[in-house]
Nucleic acid binder design. Structure first.
Lengths: 332, 332
DNA sequence: TACGCTGCGGAAATCGATTTCTGACTACAG
DNA sequence: CTGTAGTCAGAAATCGATTTCCGCAGCGTA
């Protein structure tokens, strides 16, 4: 490998001068500067980033810790983050935690030993890794979920409002027996969306019936099972509000398997958009989150946090958007 | 930050001994060893990965250069890669090239300066970055596409065979005027799938008609436009074979917009599975690629390549799988 | 003329770990 | 009792850049 010393020797200057020419952080005699550039080109010199990182005590890596890149919600979010990272000169390290606190903690540990510049993280239920990172004062942005007792920049979505809007839309369509499949009790988004559901019922003068609510695991299989159990009720629901994309898909599969159709047999509104929702027939009504924007905003916050570590933490809340399609058509 | 020197001082040994205790690469007096461990715990010492990387002249980073993580094909592939990386002690840096050779080259350059351990790359049309990396002898695995003149491990899919199977299935359904929307001429997968299409026609005794073939850009808009142009033919096609997922979606959107339905007005087979293809009504017949497996295989090859750099390059070709669903139902 | 200030290049310290080299000590064979 | 091989701890070199510190030269001002 050619080093800065090789370049220095070749161009008859000291390594310090080479460094100064390349970083442009100090004036250098144009003649020497030219010689250095020539030597760099001739030797095809490429600085060693690791050595630079060591000296500078920082890297240009951001970690993004999410539960699963295959979930379209995170896919798009990561893309938004990567676009910011790229323009700001960072690289993104992808970390799939699979909702496993141990994996989250392992990644957090890697963030620290590898001296990464910052982290964007969607916390698992116990947020083990978040605690470690907070303690180490690593620049960190929480996305999607809040964590009790941790002061950090966050990018959230107005889950309660979004859920309310989705459920209100069903009520306005004439549905009154509306079921809800939400996520685990320990996850803030699950509880917020449930709260939104209840608020909408209240607004519509409908009594809350806890038999119509299921807490599943935010996964496809969980949505499927929850739907099955709802259909076994003596008086099955007329409509369903499902609190994330995977559980919505699971519920739809359950309906398909039973030969039931939306909205004729049961109307459906799902939280989270799914790709090509328009192509699904009947097309799915969703409470869409601005996922790309979520990632982009997280990136911008992280950049600011790194630039001014002392700044008090800020929380950005983005709005959801109700995409009315066919599965929520009003009652005939 | 606490360093190995702090630990050494605290436990009354030399830094060398601390290093040996922690790496376990040499026998150390159990008593000293115990002292070191105690000091590590007390000081909450965490080795500095950057310093280690510098000394060892290698990092534990893999780059994965793909065109767009939002394309489900790559999403799943990246997940497969990350799973291998995790078990092998590597981290994955995500690089979206957007099919732009300049971006690809920029990422290749970053791979070199950051001393990443290896790269998994889906080359853009001119493969600028691949050339740079090949020249630098960086451990590299090509995925999805071949590159002329570059000897490297590759993981490919039997594109020609998959395309043949998909088109043959249409022929068996009684369709004879079958159109094909494929990708750019410079991309190997586009040409291989076109070759498969032609082979199937030949096998079915159907004359190849170049008016029924469109070269688009592998994107949604391109598929849409290509479909429009096919529908404007004096005698429009009875069936369509589209050579990737995004163009298939674009074509379907075009059909939807015109009020045409598959398979009644035009039968459709698409290359690449799409998520929840079963939920789309009518459900889409696809030539599915083993995308997760593709990423996993690439990871395993990369691991081997790093372990034994001298080994001659190997190519793994995986099989596609025809998923017969509704859009290709036989002609009545 | 003397003094101070500025601009710029080079020597050397520095970042924090790993690893080579050296020397002390032990054990065992002759 | 001596010589040799083997173990293991510590001193110091090392990875490759950046940056501090120092010294020299040139210029302006009193």
């Amino acid at each position: 490998m050619t080093t800065i010393y090789d370049v220095a020797r070749r161009s008859g200057v000291s390594p310090a001068t080479v460094s100064r020419v390349l970083s442009g952080r100090r004036n250098v005699d144009p003649e020497l500067s030219e010689k250095v550039r020539a030597a760099v080109a001739e030797l095809r010199y490429r600085p060693n980033g690791v050595a630079r990182n060591l000296r500078k005590a920082s890297t240009n890596l951001w970690a993004v810790v999410i539960s699963d890149i295959e979930n379209p919600f995170f896919t798009s979010l990561v893309r938004g983050l990567e676009d910011v990272a790229q323009t700001e000169g960072y690289h993104v390290v992808l970390c799939n935690s699979d909702e496993d606190p141990a994996k989250e903690a392992a990644y957090a540990s890697a963030v620290l030993t590898e001296q990464m510049a910052g982290v964007v993280i969607s916390p698992t239920s116990t947020a083990d890794g978040v605690q470690v990172l907070a303690e180490a004062k690593t620049p960190m942005v929480l996305i999607d979920r809040r964590v009790e007792g941790v002061e950090a920049d966050s990018v959230l979505v107005d889950n309660e409002h979004g859920a309310t809007e989705g459920v209100r839309h069903l009520i306005e369509g004439g549905y009154r027996r509306i079921a809800c499949i939400t996520g685990p009790r320990r996850v803030s988004t699950a509880m917020d969306r449930l709260a939104g559901y209840r608020a909408a019922l209240r607004g519509g003068g409908i009594r809350y019936d806890k038999d119509l609510v299921r807490h599943a695991d935010f996964r496809e299989a969980g949505g499927f099972a929850a739907m099955e159990s709802l259909l076994e009720l003596g008086e099955p629901p007329e409509a369903l509000f499902a609190a994330n994309n995977l559980m919505t898909v699971g519920a739809l599969e359950c309906l398909a398997k039973r030969g039931l159709r939306a909205p004729d047999d049961i109307a459906v509104v799902g939280f989270d958009d799914i790709p090509w929702a328009d192509l699904v027939v009947p097309s799915l009504t969703t409470v869409a989150q601005p996922t790309y924007e979520l990632g982009r905003t997280a990136g911008l916050l992280l950049k600011d946090r790194i630039a001014s570590p002392g700044r008090p933490p800020s929380t950005v809340t983005l709005r959801t958007e109700l995409h009315i399609r066919s599965t929520s058509a009003p009652k005939p």
